[in-house]
Write a protein that binds this DNA or RNA. Structure first.
Length: 530
RNA sequence: GGCCCCGUGGUGUAACGGUUAGCACGCGAGGUUUUCAACCUCGUAGCGCGGGUUCGACUCCCGCCGGGGCUACCA
């Protein structure tokens, strides 16, 4: 019945990945009593549920398979993004947020935003706002929160009290120096064990079992074992009563009904601690998925010097949120086929965190640029104009719309738009190098003829303009570039611009003729003086 | 040092014991062309190393090397 349930709910890869475990599970089921006892004794199993069925539970009493178990598995997925507000949202953090969001949307679940602000010095309102700002720009809307971990302090104290009462945790006056000394005596691969004390000012440690492994069933890594004997009885609350990260996270994830913890690889080593806390609390832990970390172009940590570091930096560089989402999604995750360009809807449809790869990836801005260009070109003109207007801080008026229409298939990023169309909005500054290169002697008679030809063009639109200039070309029997480049320099100031007919049309006849005249005057003046 | 993770071209990935190791970015050449892009075609470059297992390993096992994370009364 279970296999059938699993098959019908989650066909495909997730099931296949789990098939082996399912077999183990079944064997276990049949010799349940004996098997479970020995398992619990030897391994202190604490693990995530897989995609398709429950793993052996944490609790000491075995809950028989029942309908209620099935309904529990149908619960809505709840993921969380839980950044600590240390400043700008880094790209790695953005990817973590994206993967959480995609998984939540894919499963029709909820994403909870929780700010890990128990470190009061780092957690300034400004830092929190930076994170929210970045998430809003990326259009990763959360369903609950932002919740402050700090504000849940009462609850943390409450749980702390009950763990103390049950003996799962104890007060230990040993300082970190004491622990270090203990390790020098007992070896670095042996976990510290303290002595319980009545000292109310002593730090609180969680009791870690002396034998067995704590097992993380990771959706990405598979089974990862951490020997309990090597783990310290770790501090969960300071002497002053304030709680520590690994404790607060476990309590919060449990309380908030998180079903899937999707976070960076740097937390993998924290996971057994959090599992141990949840086991002490008597709650079932969520599933875990630890994403490989992101690195800069040189393989080192991502930083300002080393490629773009923050989300706001990507915004400043003129990237589109949709392109960033697509790119980030591809960093460590693939579709299985050769699809690379995907709308957000497609990402949501296809994404599953269990398909994420295991190796760390390098952030490569060149590919982002290419992808961004794809998204820029595929946008409808109205949308494109609106986005460009917002980026430039301008009104999306007709003139900007016209500018956008001639530049859309050229710009890879929003930052590249303005330099290409600025000539439509302000008098161009002539690039002297371009002038010397293009405005050779033969150029001016051609320019003069073009001026005459264009003055009669009506309506002043690309097709008519092209025809008028083509006749000049035919008459003089010169190559197009000989005529078009001088015009380009005359009206834009440089050698690079959108298509010349479109550029002329967008500029308008009056301004175009004026600028061409001015170029001719400059030449005449130069002759007179030279 | 201890514990843990990872290792296919420059980059992101596919391959799940049998393929000429596929795709995309980049890069190079050519084409198109009014500039620059875009676009089209072709090309370039890879299984970290060494042992096994197997008729056969990128795929499985072991060792090594390399990269990374954690190792706080930080998060």
């Amino acid at each position: 019945m279970w296999i059938i349930t699993a098959l019908s709910r989650e066909p495909g890869r997730a099931f296949l990945n789990s098939a082996k475990s399912a077999a183990v599970y079944f064997v276990g089921l049949h010799i349940r009593g004996l098997w479970l006892n020995s398992w619990m004794a030897s391994e202190r199993v604490s693990s995530a549920r897989s995609n398709t069925f429950s793993r052996p539970p944490l609790v000491e009493t075995w809950a028989p398979i029942s309908m209620s178990d099935d309904s529990e598995r149908d619960e809505k997925v709840r993921v969380r993004f839980a950044p600590s507000p240390t400043g700008l949202l880094h790209i790695g953090g953005a990817r973590t947020a994206l993967y959480n969001w995609l998984q939540a949307r894919h499963d029709g679940g909820a994403m909870i935003l929780r700010i890990e602000d128990t470190d009061r010095e780092r957690s300034t309102p400004d830092n929190v706002e930076q994170i929210l700002d970045a998430l809003r720009w990326l259009e990763l809307e959360w369903d609950e929160g932002p919740k402050s971990q700090y504000e849940r302090g009462d609850r943390h104290v409450e749980v702390l009290g009950s763990l103390l009462a049950s003996g799962a945790a104890y007060r230990d006056p040993a300082t970190s120096q004491d622990v270090k000394a203990w390790k020098d005596r007992h070896g670095a691969d042996r976990g510290y064990r303290g002595e319980a004390s009545d000292d109310p000012g002593a730090a609180v440690r969680l009791r870690v079992p002396d034998d067995g492994d704590t097992i993380v069933q990771d959706l990405i890594r598979g089974e990862v074992r951490f020997p309990n004997a090597a783990a310290d009885d770790f501090v969960i609350a300071r002497g002053d009563g304030s709680v520590l990260y690994n404790f607060a996270v476990a309590v919060d994830d449990a309380d908030m009904g998180i079903t899937d913890v999707i976070r960076g690889d740097d937390h993998l080593s924290n996971t057994p601690k959090q599992l141990l806390v949840m086991e002490a609390m008597g709650v079932e832990p969520p599933r875990y998925a630890h994403l490989p970390l992101l690195h800069g172009p040189d393989g080192k940590k991502l930083s300002k010097r080393n490629g773009a570091a923050s989300v706001q930096e990507l915004r400043e560089r003129g990237y589109l949120p949709a392109a960033v989402r697509n790119y980030l999604a591809l960093l460590g995750w693939g579709t299985g086929d050769d699809t690379t360009v995907m709308s957000t809807e497609q990402l949501i449809e296809r994404f599953d965190v269990s398909d994420v790869g295991r190796s760390s990836a390098i952030f490569d801005e060149q590919k982002l640029r290419w992808l961004n260009g794809r998204f820029m070109r595929e946008m409808a003109l109205d949308e494109y104009t609106a986005v460009v207007a917002r980026h430039l801080g301008r009104e999306p008026d007709e003139r900007l719309r016209a500018a956008c229409s001639i530049v859309q298939d050229k710009a890879q990023t929003l930052n590249e738009v303005w330099p290409l169309v600025a000539f439509l909005f302000e008098e161009p500054v002539t690039d002297e190098k371009a002038w010397r290169k293009v405005m050779k002697d033969g150029a001016f008679p051609l320019l003069e003829e073009a001026h005459a030809a264009l003055s009669g063009v009506d309506p002043f639109e690309p097709g008519q303009i092209e025809r008028a200039l083509a006749s000049v070309l035919a008459e003089r029997d010169v190559k197009p570039g000989k005529l078009y480049q001088p015009i380009r320099v005359a009206i834009t100031g440089g050698t690079v611009s959108p298509g010349i007919f479109e550029s002329l049309a967008a500029l308008g006849r009056e301004a175009a003729l004026r600028r061409m005249r001015r170029a001719l005057d400059r030449d005449r003046k130069a002759r007179r003086n030279g």
